[in-house]
Design a protein around this nucleic acid. Sequence first.
RNA 1: GGGCCUGUAGCUCAACGGUCAGAGCAGAGCGCUCAUAACGCUUUGGUUGGGGGUUCAAAUCCCUCCGGGCCUACCA
Length: 574
Amino acid sequence: MARILVTSALPYINGVKHLGNLVGSQLPADVYARYMRGRGHEVMFICATDEHGTPAELAAAKAGEPVADYCARMWQVQKDLADGFRLSFDHFGRSSSARNHRLTQHMAGRLADAGLIEEVSERQVYSIDDGRFLPDRYIEGTCPNCGYPRARGDQCENCTKQLDPTDLIEPRSAISGSTNLEVRETKHLYLRQSLLRDRLREWIDSKTDWPVLTTSIAHKWLDDGEGLQDRGITRDLDWGIPVKRGNVIWPGMADKVFYVWFDAPIEYIAATAEWADANGLDDEAWERWWREDLGAEDVRYVEFMGKDNVPFHTLSFPATILGANYDGAEPWKLVDYIKSFNYLNYDGGKFSTSQGRGIFMDQALDIFPSDYWRWWLMSNVPEGSDANFTWDSFQGGVNKDLADVLGNFVSRVTKFARSRFGETIPAGGDYGPEEATVVAELARRLAAYEAAMEAIELRKAAQELRGLWVTGNEYLQSAAPWAAFKTDPDRAAAITRFAFNLIRLYAVLSRPFLPDTSEKMLAALFNPDASWPGTLAETLGTLAGGHPFTVPDVLFAKVEDARREELEARFAGA
RNA sequence: GGGCCUGUAGCUCAACGGUCAGAGCAGAGCGCUCAUAACGCUUUGGUUGGGGGUUCAAAUCCCUCCGGGCCUACCA
């Protein structure tokens, strides 16, 4: 039994996430975690809300709430949606937790001890009316290059020129519109990750099996311009983790907090500690996942994220991990595999929160059960390139794959059996050469499915899973128990029994993708053994004659054309 | 500007130097009647974006041109 640590990129706290966010980290991570649990491995699956930073403060202000209250409320909203999509986190934490405060401060202290922290004095724009420093992109003004009146302080969206906030003509606060701005001197801590450049490169170069998307982004950052740049890890904000060096005051850093991108990945570790706390366990329970000197030497750590997150996970966070072990005293676990994803578009354009374009997690669950979404999203997950959601494609995937191939298989088997033999699986007859042929075919496809899941090639895995379902329909057509019933009832009984065992097999194999449906299928069989198959010949004998069953309700309702058209219109956007 | 990815059947994708370039959907025909008018079988359809090169052999490697996407470091 292996031990597998799985983390999903942390969803940001400022509102309900859309399907593009879901498909790029939480959902694939869940499918992988469920698969590994199904194989009998010990899995720790961690996620949390990412709660700090300027957008959280602004969202709270807009909602008229104290930021702590806002975050607590939004955490619950996101938790409920995660439950709705059946995301099987062992713990869904919060980056604002006491655990993360302590651990982030501890890590910063270790990095300072290692000589990897530098104090840098810089000039930042301060908005007097807003009472806060403004990140570059929260300053608007006229572009000095093209005259676009709504250029942002980091870049002009119109002419794409990179800007410095001080370049802007008539700069104003993007928050309040105030022009009462001034440049102030402020001191910040920088993580000197440039000093770790060679070690990071060596480490990344050793990961020859990582997705190209992951390594190419990492290399880009290592080699671009003058190479890996040091990064500021503190901010002048109220909401966040106070800057401390371990548990002591950091001179000159009062009233500052750590940068959200410094504390967010550390929350992976802290959330595991939160998990231990929530379950009444001691520190050893979480340390054995994260500390190579305390039991984590055999852990395989896999991270899931969208491509925008890759630089932080390939460079900054590893720099923190490596730096914190400068003296060999704290060997924290480095990631073993980074699965990164491209973006999901909505009908040819980007999902957009501000324009109300696309589908958000809460809306999705109001429209269709989570398994419908899980299936379409995973069988179209943007692995190789950006993918595109259309209602037409969604309708096709649900109707053909789920309703026709899988759902109808369960329906035809259970209804045939009930009408001919009653509500117990028929005894009589034996499996013959036809079943042996199907077992061989299933074995081939199962091996391909397992290989794809091990390699985290999820589109391919979904295809192989569908192929396994198809094999059931092929078998029924060829064995034709309805015909055999008239001449050789024992033969019909054997075919039917075999088909019931296929239903059980499909329930087990489909569980990572379709947890609710899997449960319904097993329930219709009165919850037989649901362990992953060893040998197929053996596993297809699990259900014997006399075992009771019921005909389940239709597993997947078809998406009608009228329904699709209605949804297309409703989600067309502003 | 620079870097990376990408262009294969009407659509979505696979094939990672080696048998006639494959699959799902869509289209056509046949079969079955257990089933959500579901399922199965057969079949139409491609000068692999264009051009050049390397090789016994190229969708695959190299060069070039054309198209699409992403990233480019203080939003997270």
